[in-house]
């Protein structure tokens, strides 16, 4: 699980071109969206959909579920574990 989380952080940085950040800057339980945490928004959520599909082969059928799944690195990792 911790390896998955580290990989996810690197992939988030790559997918979103967050060249200022390193994986250490992203906390496991910090909110990814909204003004706290990374300050991501609905456009970035689209990148997460692409990321899950291309790196983990998981398709998100209902984009409205995205907000829960993409809440933090923890919730993302849990979602991937239970869908693989």
């Amino acid at each position: 699980m911790s390896e998955l989380k580290e990989n996810l952080k690197a992939q988030i940085i790559e997918q979103l071109s967050l060249e200022d950040l390193t994986p250490a800057d992203i906390k496991d339980d910090a909110p990814l969206f909204g003004d706290e945490g990374l300050g991501l928004d609905s456009i970035d959520a689209l990148e997460f959909i692409v990321l899950l599909e291309s790196n983990y082969g998981i398709k998100i059928a209902d984009p409205s579920k995205g907000r829960e799944i993409f809440h933090s690195v923890n919730s993302l990792a849990a979602f991937i574990e239970s869908n693989q």
């Binding site: 979103l16 967050l18 060249e19 200022d20 950040l21 003004d35 706290e36 945490g37 990374l38 300050g39 991501l40 970035d44």
Partner: peptide, 20 residues
């Protein structure tokens, strides 16, 4: 090399959107 991040830090900004 990433002088824009360095400038952000020197200015003491806290604006997460900046990195995007």
């Amino acid at each position: 090399t990433n002088w824009q991040k360095e400038c952000y830090q020197q200015l003491g900004l806290d604006y997460p959107k900046f990195h995007k």
